[in-house]
């Protein structure tokens, strides 16, 4: 089943489909990474990233892989792993890079968490459903229980305005949120 169907389905069904993707495809990725000297943790990180890219390409950018979903996810995983290897060879001489990168990640997550508490999780969930998942107004109304598409549209702009004001007041930038 294509991820596009996975995403459109309810959260429970989506979880079932992601579980299937793990059970069917992850072992192949794990074997590839193991044969290339990687660890289980590295295989897990690689697969997570591959699923994220797959989702964005197929659902958001409406890309249809000609080779089929399984081969496509395997290809993405392989590329992520190989690119990661090249990067680690290049940065090996830089010493304690991981520690400082982790600190930056932690700070970014804390900022995001504080921001969301103030902006409101409900608003962020609504906005991400429209702008990231690209749900239609009809789907948005159904997910968040709005009586009409018009009400959903008004609420979407109210939330957008609210978050924008937070961004403006705090002079937040996209970089504050990127891990």
């Amino acid at each position: 089943m294509k991820v596009i169907e996975v995403i459109e389905a309810s959260e429970t069904t989506r979880e079932v489909r992601f579980t299937q993707l793990y059970l069917n495809i992850f072992p192949v990725v794990a074997r590839f990474i193991s044969r290339n000297g990687g660890s289980l943790e590295e295989a897990q990180d690689t697969f997570q990233e591959a699923l994220l890219i797959y989702y964005e390409k197929v659902v958001i950018n409406k890309f249809e892989p000609t080779c089929g979903d399984k081969a496509y996810i395997l290809g993405i995983s392989r590329n992520i792993w190989l690119k990661g290897q090249e990067k680690s060879v290049k940065t090996e001489s830089l010493g304690n890079t991981d520690v400082s990168e982790n600190l930056v990640d932690q700070l970014a997550s804390e900022k995001l968490w504080l921001f969301l508490q103030e902006a409101g999780k409900k608003c962020m969930d609504l906005l991400q459903s429209f702008y990231y998942e690209q749900l239609s107004m009809r789907e948005l109304s159904s997910r968040f229980g709005f009586g009409s598409e018009r009400s959903a549209t008004v609420q979407k702009y109210k939330c957008l305005e609210k978050v924008r004001e937070q961004v403006q007041t705090k002079s937040l930038t996209y970089e504050d949120f990127v891990d």
Binding site: L112, M124, Q128, Y131, L160, V167
Partner: peptide, 12 residues
């Protein structure tokens, strides 16, 4: 900036 932050939130 807000659109970018929303997308990053979606990814998370």
């Amino acid at each position: 900036q807000t659109y970018q932050i929303i997308r990053e939130y979606g990814r998370k």
